[in-house]
Design a protein around this nucleic acid. Structure first.
Lengths: 257, 257
DNA sequence: CCGGCGAAGATTGTTTACAATATAGTTTTT
DNA sequence: AAAAACTATATTGTAAACAATCTTCGCCGG
């Protein structure tokens, strides 16, 4: 992979995850149709969440092709997907960069997210089935263990699954998807919150309290907890942002426009 | 630019603080980047909204290429966009069909939409500027005239613009986009509501009352109107759906609940 | 010294050809 | 005659080549 341009190196056609021909009717929710571009998009999301790729970093199609052993078509599609999700930004003829959210945008996203999460908890049918409570408790334990181990990747995913399971308890499919979409918009800033161990600790305690509220069918407590749970990560980002750009006002002005 | 060096370079690329190039960032809102695929997607949306293409109708890439005088790449991208918006559905290796929403899905979408629209009206700053009120009134007149003329295409677009302008008054960009996305999800069923002239008449009256509530800064009235405004179109669709499939009762029962 | 000019390189955007897959219709077998 | 297997065709998915665009950097004249 010396110089990347003179001749385009041929694509090695291995490692293509092909969707199995059997059971295309998604028998269960777990095994979803995942096309190649979805896999790439998810992997890039992961990189961004964990801070392996920073805001303003450039994403080059050819690099991603080599990394995922595929052709540019799939990578391209993945970038379009991520753009629609708001995780990256594409500039015509120039490529894609990891999006850098302004504090204003972050506040707006979290305001809408809070509204929808509260709605989900409001319509959630009580009492919650014992089997669902058990599954949530299991996810919470996994989350807690990952925090103790300092395994940020597992922290991220177990946290994600906990919330998906929680809001999945409300029966409104459209609402569930909307909540997830908004959560994804903030993937790019999650690494800032993860940098603070005390924030992770607080998240763990919130989860435990949420479980208790679910068990006892205390809806108001649950809603208050969800509201509180959303605060720290946005505040951590805004603090970090101001620490980065707060001193040089003109730079902040340019970026914030 | 960083040369792709002989040794595989680490994932982090050299990103220097890039001097922002001279304002190529949206010179004006009006002239937006609209790629070919966007044009195709919008045109297909229009067909679906006006009932020129029915639910379950098959969309063949090659046909669309001839219709829009382009290659399959653009058409393909447009179909992916429409799939993400929830207007069509793509089945692997089989193609795309206009999505057929069940009454349950419709009710769920409208419930979320109502929640978000009410939120927008709640945070909307009063009083509304005179210039904004004038623009809204102008859009309302256009809508009204289109109804009288029986021009359903203009009815659709002027109605769309009225609502975009109305909710655009709230300053939360993310919220505005979320509302628009949900509205798009129901494009496929709009033709059912448009079939009832009395529904269009009611919509016109709603708009007039909304304008009055905006002028007098009566927030509660405005919210109640918005709630009422959302009801007829979903009910029209559900009635039409049951008329289509009502004969086989067990099917309707399964889908409705 | 330095500021426009232009060629070369790097990256994205477009087009075409080819391969994989599903559906329907036909033939073969029992 | 019914069911299974096969072939033909239509359609989508993949890959590579080609074209356009932007950036960088060296060159030359002032």
């Amino acid at each position: 992979m010396a110089v990347r341009s003179a001749k385009r190196e041929p694509v090695t056609r291995n490692l293509r995850t092909r969707t199995p021909r059997t059971a295309r009717e998604e028998p269960t929710v777990s095994v979803r149709k995942q096309s190649v571009s979805d896999v790439i998009a998810r992997s890039l999301e992961e990189d961004i969440v964990l801070g392996r790729r920073h805001p303003r970093e450039h994403l080059v199609e050819q690099d991603l092709c080599e990394r995922f052993n595929t052709h540019r078509g799939d990578v391209r599609l993945a970038l379009f997907e991520l753009e629609k999700k708001g995780i990256i930004r594409r500039i015509p003829n120039r490529g894609a960069i990891v999006r850098d959210l302004t504090p204003k945008e972050v506040r707006e996203i979290y305001a809408v997210r809070e509204e929808l999460e509260v709605m989900a908890l409001r319509i959630l049918p009580f009492p919650v089935a014992k089997s669902d409570l058990d599954k949530l408790a299991e996810l919470q334990r996994k989350h807690s263990a990952a925090i103790d181990a300092g395994d940020l990747l597992t922290v991220f995913y177990s946290n994600l699954h906990f919330h998906q399971m929680l809001f999945g308890l409300c029966s409104n499919r459209c609402l569930i998807e909307a909540i997830e979409l908004l959560a994804q918009k903030t993937y790019g800033i999650r690494s800032y919150a993860n940098a603070f161990p005390e924030a992770l600790d607080q998240a763990r305690r919130d989860h435990i309290e949420m479980l208790e509220a679910l068990r006892t069918s205390r809806r108001d407590d649950l809603i208050a907890l969800a509201r509180r749970h959303l605060k720290p990560s946005q505040e951590a980002y805004i603090r970090a942002y101001e620490r980065r750009f707060g001193d040089s006002k003109q730079v902040a002005a340019i970026l914030a426009k």
